[in-house]
């Protein structure tokens, strides 16, 4: 419910939720007599049978896909996580063995957890910070603004491609371009990718470079802040910084929250760059969780074990998202309900 609330708020388009409630509360209004309710229900059913049918026909492509490629796989992967399975023979039930092995013995799991959490911890705030700052910079009506916006967005357009991963791999190698530029300043660079202390940072930098799409969402949020708020703040003598703290940030907090949730979820699943640029190395310093899971499942064909890894990932993402939603009460400001910060 909160998600929906939050999305309809964000878009400030007719709230989906409200039109929904209308439909659902109708039978509830005619409460007192059960018979009346039943009669009403039957009538409603008859009248809306065609509507129901048409509705389900229209959503059937999604519904079939959801049942076949999402719901059923989720259930099956949960089952598989308690089995040993290699695709060749039938899965054998081994209880919680996969999980206990992962949590108690698996050193690679621990390493990939540390790597992934480090990656998320740094790349998400960096990305949000840059995208917010640049969005504020771009939120001005100047000539040529479209051009700047396109230029800054462009890296995000191509950023997740194999091509850019290849580019990165070349630029940050020992005798790559970056080290030569550093050489001008008298800095002797290392092989950024071959060095276990720096390799993860090349990936974080690559992710930060692609702040374009979060920036566009911030920009959309900024455009929706009513100008009269700023005007009345000026009348009250607020400075530029004061306006930013007391108007821009609170008004933008729903968008910030949205970006934060999606970026965290996305960053946990980073795969292509780690696969192409660093191949998880050196000495597992960039062995991202998604990469580990992929290799367990499709290189070693330990599909039960990999399913357990997948469920742990799901649990982590769910818990973090839950915490996010919970904490959001204290800092995300929704105009209508007056809750949230200042």
């Amino acid at each position: 419910m909160r998600i929906k609330h939050f999305i309809s708020r964000k878009t400030s388009l007719p709230s989906y939720l409200s039109s929904d409630q209308e439909i659902q509360t109708k039978p509830a209004v005619s409460t007192s007599k059960a018979s009346l309710r039943a009669g009403l229900f039957r009538k409603r059913t008859k009248r809306s049978y065609e509507n129901n049918l048409a509705g389900y026909i229209f959503i059937s492509p999604w519904l079939i896909g959801f049942l076949l490629l999402t719901l059923w796989p989720i259930a099956q992967s949960f089952y598989l996580s308690f089995t040993q399975y290699s695709l060749l023979n039938d899965p054998t039930w081994i209880g919680v063995n996969n999980y206990s092995e992962i949590f108690l013995k698996d050193q690679v799991f621990r390493k990939s957890m540390v790597v992934t959490f480090t990656y998320v911890l740094f790349s998400v705030p960096l990305k949000l910070f840059f995208s917010l700052m640049i969005a504020i910079l771009l939120n001005k009506s100047l000539k040529g603004m479209n051009l700047y916006r396109t230029a800054i967005y462009f890296p995000s357009l191509i950023g997740t491609s194999v091509a850019v991963a290849v580019l990165w791999r070349n630029m940050f190698s020992l005798d790559g371009y970056i080290n030569h530029v550093l050489g001008w300043f008298g800095i002797h660079g290392v092989g950024w990718i071959a060095n276990p202390h720096t390799s993860l940072w090349t990936l974080i930098l690559l992710n930060t470079w692609q702040f374009g799409s979060t920036m566009i969402i911030f920009l959309a949020g900024l455009k929706q802040i009513p100008q009269d708020l700023y005007e009345s703040a000026s009348v009250d003598g607020a400075g530029r910084f004061g306006k930013f703290i007391h108007i821009t940030l609170p008004m933008l907090s729903p968008v910030m929250f949205f970006n934060l949730v999606l970026e965290i979820i996305g960053s946990f699943q980073m795969f292509t760059q780690a696969f192409i640029i660093t191949e998880g190395g050196p000495i597992n310093s960039t062995y991202m969780y998604a990469l580990y899971l992929f290799e367990k499942a499709f290189k070693y064909y330990q599909m039960g074990y990999a399913s357990a890894l997948a469920w742990i990932l799901l649990a982590i993402i769910a818990i973090l998202t839950g915490i996010n939603f919970f904490v959001s009460r204290y800092w995300v400001f929704y105009e209508s309900d007056g809750r949230g910060s200042k």
Binding site: M1, I3, K4, I7, Y16, L17, D20, I23, Q24, S48, N51, N52, A54, G55, Y56, F58, I59, W62, L63, F66, L69, T70, W72, P73, I74, Q76, S77, L80, V261, L262, I265, F268, Q269, A290, L293, A297, M303, A306, S307, L309, A310, W311, L313, L314, I317, T321
Partner: peptide
């Protein structure tokens, strides 16, 4: 279109946007 459980299905649709693909990829 108004149909039964539309709200629930739509919520589910929104929630699948956040589902990590790793959970479904093996099955």
């Amino acid at each position: 279109l108004n149909f039964r459980f539309r709200g629930i299905w739509f919520s589910i649709l929104i929630m699948t946007m956040m589902l990590p693909g790793q959970v479904t990829i093996i099955p």
